[in-house]
Design a protein around this nucleic acid. Structure first.
Lengths: 327, 327
DNA sequence: AAATACAATGTAAAGGATTACATTCAGTTC
DNA sequence: GAACTGAATGTAATCCTTTACATTGTATTT
């Protein structure tokens, strides 16, 4: 690999001049500039990022932390992140934690080692205290799930409101017994979505029964299926179910299909997120659209502004109820 | 951020000793070692990867090139890659090319800049000549789709055989008119799968008609839907369709559902890949399982061995026909 | 023509780590 | 006790780039 020295020698100038051609071309005379460029072409030289990063004490990598990439919800966000990052000349390090803290620590080390300049976390399972400590030392942005703390910015939607609207919509459709497939209430969005759901029920003077609730231990298709199975086995005459994630809803829908339960006539179902597949299920799934791509983009913008030392404000984006065949 | 200098000063030793404690502990006396470790703890020091990488002229990043992460097929592979990479102490840079060459070039620069140590490409759209040139200079492994060339190792499955088996299975089920939803034959896997399909038909003395073929321009759910729409509109009495990707098959299935065409009785359908969602469609999808996770793992093993200068052999893994409700 | 200004370029230090080579010193041998 | 050995540690060069500061030389001013 040629170095800047090689280029300098070939062009008959000093390394400083080559560096200037690279970083501040207007400061070197037209003629010299051409000579240098010529040498660069001839040697097919590209500056070593290693040297450059060391000297500038910077890195153009962003950590993207998520539990598991197989949850479609994260995909669109990651696409938005990657696109925007590239625009800013950054690259992303994909980090699946599998909800294990030791794994997250491995990735946090990348920040300590100065390999990554900052992090976007979408992993709600990360230990709060550790997250807070890390955010004191490094630029952090939370995407979707968040906790409130100093330096811990976030971009998200109003989960409580969305859940309220979804539930209200079901109630208006005449549903009286509406199940809830939730996840661990350790997560803020789980708490918020339950709150919204309860608020709507209360408004309609409906007292939910214990059997209407199911708490999935992972956000996966299988968990959704399991959830519906469990709800159905309790035979409480539910006529609609609200799942707090499309992954769960799709799994639940599969169970209904398998049992030949007519959707939406015998049982309506609503998901959350609007992942791509919700349009391909049978019937297609009513859901709440989160602006995932945009969330990704905004996360990057926020993070890069933080890296550059600017102050940023938390952002709550709009969601949208997508009515389709499953209700 | 504390540096090795700070640690040395605090421990009252030279930087060389600190470095030795870090990299070759047995070469320093017990007592000194403890002093240094103590200082490291007190300062919460972690060695800067920037300095380390520069000095060692190495990087522990692997490029992972794929067209678009939203094709589920790549997900499981990426999971395998990430897991295995981590095991070896490497991290992965996720690179979506969106099938655009200029985008691939941006990522290739990471190799030239010495930020990445090697690349795993799953992108069949990358210009062959450029790929060949890059592989001369940097460690490359192709996963799934591949071209044959010096230094361009690959891990894949036998697409021709798999397609042959799928088609034969359909024929044995009594299907006489079997459609093929393919993608651009610029891709080897597309050519191979068509070959296998044709070989099976030939064995059963069936001459396929022109109207049985559809070539999708992207591998997406919508393309699959569009494909089935197109095939159905030609009204050629097909009783089965083989889609070369689950994404296409799921889209096609959606179209059948929408038109209330009974699957598998009126129309059978087979996909390829065994992505997660194929088990959640209605009816569940018959498909060919590719060992994606394993492919990912093996790619990493191969790549790291190449990085270390070893010779590696190409690998063809086994596939498996997964019979489900759609046939 | 001397003094000054400024554009263009060069020299060398810095950034953080690793490591070949040099040095120190305690222990062994004769 | 002199000579030697080898373990433990230190010194300084190196990786590649950027940039403050120094230098050169030409153009402008008085």
């Amino acid at each position: 690999m040629p170095t800047i020295q090689d280029v300098a020698r070939r062009a008959g100038v000093s390394v400083a001049t080559v560096s200037r051609v690279l970083n501040n071309p207007s400061s070197v005379a037209e003629l010299t500039r051409e000579k240098v460029k010529q040498a660069i072409r001839e040697l097919d030289y590209s500056p070593s990022s290693l040297g450059r990063n060391l000297r500038n004490a910077e890195s153009r990598m962003l950590l993207v932390l998520l539990p598991k990439i197989s949850n479609q919800f994260y995909l669109k966000i990651v696409e938005g992140i990657e696109e925007k990052a590239l625009e800013h000349g950054y690259h992303i390090l994909l980090c699946q934690t599998h909800s294990k803290m030791e794994r997250a620590k491995v990735y946090f080390d990348l920040l300590k080692n100065q390999l990554a300049a900052g992090a976007i976390t979408m992993d709600p399972t990360i230990d709060h205290q550790i997250l807070i400590d890390m955010a004191k030392r490094f630029p952090f942005v939370q995407c979707s799930e968040y906790i409130k703390a100093e330096n811990l910015s976030y971009v998200t939607i109003d989960s409580e409101l969305a859940a309220y609207q979804v539930t209200k919509y079901l109630l208006k459709q005449g549903h009286q017994r509406i199940g809830l497939i939730n996840v661990s209430e350790y997560f803020l969005y789980a708490r918020d979505r339950r709150k919204g759901y309860l608020r709507a029920l209360k408004e309609f003077h409906i007292e939910p029964e214990k059997d209407w609730f199911y708490s999935a231990d992972t956000v996966s298709l299988e968990s959704g299926q399991q959830a519906m199975r469990s709800l159905l086995n309790k035979k409480k005459g539910l006529t609609a179910v609200f799942a707090v994630s499309d992954m769960l809803a799709i799994g639940a829908l599969k169970e209904l299909n398998t049992r030949k339960i007519d959707v939406p006539n015998e049982m309506a179902i609503v998901g959350f997120d609007k992942i791509e597949f919700t349009n391909m299920t049978y019937p297609s799934l009513t859901t709440v659209a989160q602006p995932m791509y945009k969330m990704g983009e905004i996360s990057v913008d926020m993070l890069i502004r933080k890296i550059q030392g600017e102050e940023v404000e938390d952002i709550i984006l709009d969601h949208e109820l997508i009515l389709r065949e499953s209700t």
